[in-house]
Each structure stands twice: as C-alpha cells, then as structure tokens.
Design a protein around this nucleic acid. Structure first.
Lengths: 130, 130
DNA sequence: CAGCATCCTACATGATACTG
DNA sequence: CAGTATCATGTAGGATGCTG
C-alpha cells in the first residue's frame, strides 16, 4: 500500500518519542525500577528491607520510585497501623506480568554481554590509534 | 548452600545496579536508542534520513547515540567516500536480535497501557482529595 | 519505622554556530 | 552531507536533617 505520493504508508509514521513503549521505558529505564521489581519478585517486603536488599539506593529514590510504581499499578502499598507503623510493598498482578519482558531483556543482555564488551574494546582500540 | 556467616547465598547477592541487564537498560533506556533501532529495522539509512525519520531528535543526540550503538556493536557505520560523503547506518546481526526483547516490551506496553493510565488517574484522584 | 523537605551537584539533552 | 565544538539548562539523583 502506497500513498498518492508513492511513499509507503509505513514511512508516514515517523518514529515518535511518545509511543507506549517509551512510556514504559521511562519507567523501567530509570536506575531503580527494575531492581525493585526484582527484589519484590521473591515476595512482599517492607520499606527498610527493600533498602537493604537493593544495593546503593537512597531513601529518597526508594520512596520516589515506589510511589511511581504504585501510581502505575505495578506495586501495591499496604500500611499496617501498628506501633511503629509497618508498610509492606507487593507486586500487583500487572507487576508480575512485567517479568516476562524483563526476562527477555535479561536473557539478551547475558547472551550478548560478551559481544558488546568485545565490540567496545575493539572500538576503543581503533579510536585510540592516534 | 550457605555462607560461613549462615546467610543463604541468594541473599548474598543483593540487587546490584551493575548487572548486565542494567547495562543494556542504560542503553535502551535513553531517549533515542529504541527509536533508532526501530528506524533502522526497515533497512539501512543515511544520517540525515534517520534525522528525518525520527521525530524531534537533535543532530547532536543522533550522532551521540549512533556512536554509542556503533561502539556496542548494535549498529554498523559505513562511509562511502563520494562527494559529498555518504554515510550509511545498518543494524548488525546483534542489533537485529535486539528486536525480540524490544518487542516483548512493546507488547507489554500496549497490553497494559490502559491499566497503567487508569491506575494513574485513580491514584491522582485519591491524592487530590484534600 | 517510614517517610518528607530542602539543598546541591552532575550529567543528559538541547540550541546554536562552525567545518572537512 | 555529516558531522564537531561550545554553551545553556532541566532534572535525576544524592546528602542531610526533621517528623508522625
């Protein structure tokens, strides 16, 4: 199928930065989302437990990322009004379905990590030859 | 299997920010990589053609992202010493294999975009009730 | 315990001008 | 055409201190 100008229809859909995939990538592309989803995959966890499980995360980023995930319906936040208060985070059903695409990515990463590293070294060697 | 301290090995592997998946996410998580891979999926393209295909990309970011992808072995850059010079970008074999995980992500995005949006609206409504 | 508020810095991205 | 170089800026993220 072709437009009146003879241009394939596909060309009429330029690659836009606001596609659905981009919205998800903005989520999982940040530094902590994937780690949190991974840490919650084993089971629910409290705030401080998450902080301990995930290496290097600051309190601020943990809070901020969890809020975003809660807002997106990926994580459920449950407050137990005990003293002191206990807050538990769980993956929602939607959150659990995220595992498949993430695993596809993980497998690709593991499978190609060697190639990528080798390519980088070769590239850097080439550029360094001054 | 347990460490000398009696800690399960799995717990000895806290979620780290430097896993292979994170390295790939740092690549595809940026604003342009996925768009470029998508634009090159149809076939090779020249620099300016890519700029035209991808909405909103600046010359600088196009160059920068392409260099990174070339360094990672995802994209191949070929210079034809004509006048004026012609440069063609192609997906490498490794680049083409990236399609599967990206498509898994895309499908998840499309399948859950509605849920996510609904969850966000509900979340925002709840917070707005002052 | 589980945060919120504030300040501060580094870096990612963009706009603009210039070049082989 | 296909970049490079420079400058400007928004924001992600970290450090710190305080609170219900």
């Amino acid at each position: 199928m072709v437009t009146p100008e003879g241009e394939p229809v596909l060309r009429g859909t330029p690659y836009r930065a606001d596609c659905p995939t981009r919205r998800i990538l903005d989520r999982i592309g940040d530094r902590w989302t994937v780690l949190i989803v991974g840490a919650l995959w084993d089971g629910p966890a409290r705030f401080s437990e998450l902080g301990r499980r995930i290496e290097g995360v600051s309190q601020k980023m943990l809070t901020q990322t969890l809020r975003g995930l809660e807002r997106d319906g990926i994580v459920r936040r449950t407050v137990y009004p005990e003293v002191p208060v206990r807050v538990e985070y769980t993956l929602t059903e939607a959150g659990r379905t995220l595992r498949e695409p993430l695993r596809a990515l993980e497998e690709w990463s593991i499978a190609h990590l060697g190639d990528v590293s080798a390519s980088q070294e070769a590239y850097d060697r080439g550029s360094a030859s001054s």
